[in-house]
């Protein structure tokens, strides 16, 4: 009798979440993307359905404070101008989504006003046609006002707003719900916390198909193994049928560029750029193998590598 591998199937399925809106759906984006929908382990297409390929988003930060010298050198002056940066992501670097991180709103740093941030957002919205995510600066009071303004300015575009956290989610959720946007629900490396924030959001009235989970992707060498296992367990929990864990996961891998081992000069470990790109790529590929539906990256070279691997994993399209 011949050997045949046992096929494994699950009763649960990751929810499908739609990102961005074209004019047909009340927005101005060039595409409307869907993530999730799988009823199996990541890329296990030999035994399960995976209707949508994972997507690659690129982040755009509105302050050089969050851009390392290595990146500045290797990505060029374009990172000094968020609008140009976003255009480049769409036209040359092959991003699926742009994530605008409004870090300069930080009241302890640049403390840029809500109006200034809003007008930057409007410019980016006009300059690119990709679906957009917009993240605040992480200070609850400021983000409450900021995200309300962004939500209104992006009405109809089906943005995703972030990051909603257990201690600060109400104003962001209200802002997202007011104009039909989605929300990124952040939790700190813990399955129960990931579940908790989803429950809070849904109790508040957010529909599950408007939520993406960010379980915190720790970069390679800085606790990646914790994230990897949390994501695998979240994915398995979702497939076993827990509806509160069935939101697709988003992993921000741009954190790879903050790792001291990437920033140090050490020719024995390759150039900073090559090492940094591979650091980001491996972080993202680990996230995808574990269960991410969407990864955020910083460097254009990373996008190329990750895209090729996703295509080859998905079945070589």
């Amino acid at each position: 009798m011949g050997f045949e591998g046992a096929k494994e199937s699950f009763s649960g399925r990751i929810k499908e979440v739609v990102i961005g809106a074209t004019d047909e759906h009340g927005g101005s984006r060039s595409r409307r993307l869907t993530v999730g929908g799988s009823n199996g382990l990541p890329f296990h297409s030999f035994e399960s359905e995976m209707p949508h390929k994972p997507l690659i988003a690129m982040d755009i930060v509105d302050t050089l404070r969050m851009v390392s010298d290595t990146q500045l050198k290797s990505m060029g002056d374009v990172v000094k101008d968020p609008v140009e940066w976003a255009k480049r992501c769409e036209k040359e670097w092959g991003a699926d989504i742009c994530v605008l991180k409004l870090q300069s709103a930080n009241p302890e740093e640049e403390n840029r006003s809500v109006e200034e941030c809003e007008s930057l957002f409007k410019e980016v919205l006009k300059a690119v046609s990709l679906p957009l995510f917009v993240y605040g600066c992480g200070f609850e009071e400021k983000d409450a006002k900021l995200m309300e303004a962004i939500s209104n300015a992006g009405k109809g575009e089906r943005l995703f707003i972030g990051l909603a956290e257990e201690k600060a989610y109400k104003s962001l959720t209200a802002a997202a719900m007011a104009n039909g946007h989605g929300l990124v629900a952040f939790s700190n490396l813990d399955i129960n916390l990931a579940k908790q924030i989803n429950i809070l959001l849904m109790d508040f009235g957010m529909k599950p198909e408007n939520i993406l989970m960010d379980p915190l992707m720790a970069p390679l060498g800085m606790g990646l193994e914790y994230s990897y296992s949390v994501i695998e367990r979240l994915r398995i929990g979702a497939l076993m049928g827990d509806p509160v864990l069935q939101m697709p996961m988003i992993c921000d891998c741009s954190c790879a560029w903050t790792v001291p081992e990437v920033l140090e000069e050490d020719d024995g470990k390759g150039t900073q750029v090559e090492r940094g790109v591979n650091w980001e790529v491996i972080t993202a590929e680990a996230a995808l193998m574990a269960g991410a539906a969407l990864v955020i990256t910083r460097h254009p070279e990373s996008v190329k590598h990750i895209r090729a691997t996703i295509d080859d994993l998905y079945g070589g399209v």
């Binding site: 390679l220 060498g221 990646l224 193994e225 990897y228 081992e261 020719d267 024995g268 470990k269 390759g270 150039t271 750029v273 090559e274 090492r275 790109v277 591979n278 650091w279 491996i282 680990a286």
Partner: peptide, 18 residues
Amino acid sequence: LSRGFVFPLMVLRQNIFT
């Protein structure tokens, strides 16, 4: 095995096999 690739790959291995 380029240095800038194999070093992070070994870090991944160290992470996964912890």
